[in-house]
């Protein structure tokens, strides 16, 4: 809680700090890190019901394309919200058709969904197809830091939803669904409703992050917006940071994106090797992620 508040406060103050010639680079990296952390928080919400999704790259992309297409007509904020809503709508359709699938089968179905969406966007006319889609900056460029603060806002919203859901009665329904679906039903939990609700909230937030991303990169292609890499990031970060927590995906996202950026600057093409190595080591030695490490340091519970 304090940790999450601290990160958000720092994010708000960052543009005012004396960063010298690195300022533009730091703000740009931070903005991207906030959006990826938001995406990871969104992914984690769905994971709390036991559904491991590979569709979050697609929800991110759906939000990005929707917001990009709607912003010129509707303005930035309505376009972003509608982008989230489009992602949520698609998640409802996907959720309804995958209700009976569990574990790996669910993951494969979500992967197939991502590929279908990517192909559709690639073949469609109004999306610019494979040529790509130019995007207006946030608020049509009226505020230089508009996009940055939107990213901070998205991160704050994702973190708030994650914290609130963790403390609500829904928390128990989600955890019960994850840990034993049949038992949860016999105890009175409407498993179907819980799963679909989590799916829609999660996809909405992913779409929201995608919309802000579109207004940051200013140019979308299906390869970038729907790349499998983003779906993998959405899943790796919560595992690295600590599943089913708020601080885990939040800090995990900031660390992973910073690390990735730094490695890319240092060793260019080979950065993915080191990146992969670090993740493998984390999973091997920190099964509960960063949060597990912190809990152990506090001497609270044995891991």
């Amino acid at each position: 809680m304090i940790l999450v508040g601290g990160v958000l406060l720092l994010a708000l103050l960052l543009p005012g700090l004396p960063l010298g010639e690195w300022r533009a680079f730091v703000l740009d990296t931070a903005q991207f890190a906030f959006l990826i952390s938001g995406l990871a928080l969104a992914w984690d919400l769905l994971a709390r019901t036991g559904q491991l999704s590979l569709a979050h790259g697609a929800f991110f992309g759906l939000g990005a394309y929707s917001a990009a297409l709607l912003a010129p007509g509707l303005g930035t904020l309505p376009a972003l919200l509608l982008g989230g809503a489009v992602a949520a709508l698609f998640s409802l359709l996907l959720g309804l058709s995958t209700l009976r699938l569990q574990g790996m089968y669910f993951a494969i179905a979500t992967l197939a969904f991502s590929e279908v969406i990517r192909t559709l966007v690639l073949k469609a006319q109004f999306t610019g197809g494979s040529i790509g889609l130019p995007v207006q900056p946030a608020f049509a460029g009226a505020y230089p830091l508009g996009g940055y603060y939107l990213a901070v806002a998205v991160l704050a919203i994702c973190a708030m939803v994650s914290l609130l859901l963790g403390r609500s009665r829904l928390h128990y329904a989600m955890a019960a669904t994850r840990q034993g679906e049949a038992v949860a039903r016999v105890l009175g939990v409407s498993v179907v409703r819980v799963k679909l609700l989590a799916f829609m909230i999660s996809a909405f937030l992913a779409g929201l992050a995608g919309g802000v991303y579109a207004m940051k990169t200013l140019f979308l292609t299906p390869y970038d917006a729907f790349g499998l890499g983003r779906a993998v990031e959405a899943l790796v970060i919560p595992i690295f940071g600590g599943l089913y927590t708020t601080a885990g995906p939040l800090l995990g996202g900031l660390i992973v994106v910073s690390l990735e950026t730094w490695l890319r600057l240092r060793i260019g093409e080979g950065y993915l090797v080191v990146y992969g190595l670090i993740l493998i080591l984390t999973i091997l030695f920190l099964p509960k992620g960063l949060m597990g490490l912190l809990a152990r340091r506090k001497g609270g519970r044995h891991a």
């Binding site: 128990y172 329904a173 049949a182 038992v183 016999v186």
Partner: peptide
């Protein structure tokens, strides 16, 4: 109409109290 299973299936990552709370919260809407 309540039901207990032959093969016990507790929610392993929850405490005993939290396990019961699931039933108490959702057993009656």
């Amino acid at each position: 109409l309540g039901r207990a299973f032959q093969i016990v299936q507790p929610f392993p990552e929850m405490t005993v109290r939290e396990n019961l709370l699931v039933g108490a919260l959702y057993g009656k809407p």
